[in-house]
Design a protein around this nucleic acid. Structure first.
Lengths: 369, 369
DNA sequence: GAAGGTGGTGTAATCGATTACATGGTGATT
DNA sequence: AATCACCATGTAATCGATTACACCACCTTC
């Protein structure tokens, strides 16, 4: 036997006031006299009243929820980000709805429907490729201004974007290898269509050029950020004629499996091959040797994105259009990078370079050039 | 300039029918004549109508959303599970709301409120420790029957539980090491309060006893499933007087960092120390050497839990009370386990045992004994 | 002391769907 | 031909909150 949950009317009756007063006690307590307010709160306490969200949402035309769109929920890179977003959003009274943008089902339509049927107030997307069906829904629900990009982004949409400075990160990586004396540096990329992969790759190319280093075509291996791709890339790169002495991987997952495959094939890391990753996932610190990498502040990215969205939802969108916030990156030196053994043969002018100093978080820079 | 989104009334007008008919076309299409149905769907198409969820939820007293409670969202072990839950639930019209049960803020109350204010219809919890405040909310919202445990569980609550057979998993792990000839086997546990840690530890103890193996007190090291704990445990176990030759870690995260720390300290794996983990996270296959481990079918766990919850929400709760579904576990042999080098000294009766055959998924067994 | 302002509260309309009940039409049964 | 069952559809109440507007009491201000 279940008593029906108390409604606002019940509270009003107990408190001896009208429903309007109870509602005001909840939403704008300072508009009530102290005495009434106390009466109402006592009655709420006594009845165990909770506002019915559906009713409130219907009336206020809000949802109290935001959508987080993750490309491949199964990828642990996103978990720390999701976690900090969740902290910020739920602390501000928003529920977090999670969708996987690469799920095989009709997820695009599901996302679009969330906006069209009013079940979310806004969205943070970790996927830079916004589907046209989603964009259309956003436009027609007039919600385009309640979207922020996090990590990835698209220049096609003038939306706020929280991101790491990928150009700077790639530059730190290349510079680190160069400082160690490497002159043949390979790169394992992310997917071609991915903006992060593009940024990192082009910064790698630019930076090698800036150092006067040639890049053989087969030193650039297409990957997809995954563990499997790193192992495959190692196979490819170890088979190359003029083998590079260092490799910059566009993700830690690829870097870790690259290292594992090298060692499995008898190639020592870092002696025969230096490897540097990107992300600084937790595992990077606990592998053997520790993975040298570019740290992204994942929880910071999530927090900033959530805060930016909250500001927008509150209508404080001071900045119009694209608003880019950079989160710091830093070189984390661990054990997978060292001077190349054969660098004297290759670069007669350079003596062995001492390892560079630990690098702290860098100030954001707009263009890596 | 934004036209207001079309309502059911607009559709009714365009179709030349009543709002009731439109509503019926949406919710029980077979109760309408074919002609009317077609008219209505055309009108829906023409107007671009979408049902307003808040209104529907208010009227039907449903939320169309379920809560997934994750202990530590940042832990990648959960991501595959979350992903498959999401697949199943969103394919069935439910939104997935994610909460982190170990978040410092007042998350317990937030979870409770979700039920009390009707914003979710049910919950899947990956956290076996249900807070009393949550339980109270569930009871008073009459939602106790819409909860299912996944992975972890609590015997305190007679609720359905989808789980791996942890006892069997631990048994496979110990048996594997024994079959290789190990007689001094250590164990790195999860947190004391965690039901999975308890199951795995007690099965480890039982199984060692069944094989007639002694367990020195300092061979059991308290961990917490995390990478950091594995490294600390390695430090402890390598310092022990009569060093074990094999170790069973209650999670892959701990096993991987255990291996890394061993090698870092010059202890070879598997030659000097065999290590077996639990979970089979993706990284296990890509470390060097590959991690021998007990596979849990993570996406299966998520899928089954989601399906069980859906059945309950549809009112098909055939089974009353605790309903345990076991998901299969399997021994995955990779490179971190091998016969001990010194086993002849320790177990004169046993010759070197050949590696056991690969083990397929095991049939569920209720009690590991 | 009349006019006007202000702060606190109540009345009732409203958000947009679902659905109990009513109605009218059709065909089957007697 | 009258009765009944049943199907398709319409009318209007309803879900539980928020809030525009009205109202009253009291206080300034001229």
């Amino acid at each position: 036997m279940q008593k029906a949950p108390p409604k606002i009317k019940d509270v009003a009756q107990v408190a001896g006031v009208s429903t309007a007063t109870v509602s005001r006690a909840l939403t704008q307590p300072d508009r009530l006299s102290e005495a009434t307010r106390a009466k109402v709160f006592d009655a709420i306490e006594a009845t165990g009243y909770r506002v019915n969200q559906a009713a409130r949402n219907l009336r206020t035309r809000r949802a109290g929820a935001v959508l987080v769109l993750v490309p491949n929920l199964g990828n642990p890179f996103f978990s720390a980000i999701l976690s900090s977003m969740n902290d910020v959003l739920s602390a501000n009274g928003y529920s977090v709805l999670v969708f996987d943008s690469q799920q095989p089902g009709a997820s695009e339509q599901a996302v679009a429907d969330c906006f069209l049927n009013g079940s979310v107030d806004g969205m943070i997307t970790l996927d830079g490729n916004m589907s046209t069906i989603t964009a259309k829904a956003l436009r027609s629900a007039n919600m385009m201004q309640n979207v922020v990009f996090c990590c990835e982004w698209s220049d096609q949409w003038p939306l706020p974007s929280i991101r790491s400075n990928n150009g700077l990160g790639a530059r730190l990586a290349v510079d680190h290898l160069v400082a160690l004396g490497h002159r043949r540096i390979a790169h394992v990329t992310g997917p071609d269509c991915n903006i992060l992969a593009q940024m990192r790759k082009s910064a790698y190319i630019d930076r090698c050029a800036a150092h006067g280093l040639d890049i053989a075509p087969d030193w650039i291996v297409q990957g997809d950020f995954s563990l499997g791709a790193g192992a495959l890339a190692a196979d490819r790169i170890l088979a190359v004629n003029s083998r590079p002495t260092g490799v910059f991987c566009a993700s830690d997952a690829m870097a870790l499996s690259f290292v594992a495959r090298c060692r499995q094939r008898g190639v020592r890391v870092p002696e025969d091959m230096s490897v540097i990753g990107f992300d600084d996932i937790e595992m990077a610190a606990f592998s053997e040797p520790g993975l040298t990498t570019i740290r992204q502040d994942r929880s910071g990215l999530g927090r900033l994105a959530a805060q930016e969205l909250l500001a927008r939802l509150r209508g404080e969108q001071k900045t119009e259009g694209a608003h880019v916030i950079y989160s710091p990156v830093a070189l984390i030196e661990r054990g997978t990078t060292a001077p190349p053994l054969d660098n004297s043969a290759d670069s007669p002018a350079n003596g062995r370079t001492p390892p560079s100093k630990p690098t702290e978080f860098q100030e954001p820079v707009d263009k890596p050039a």
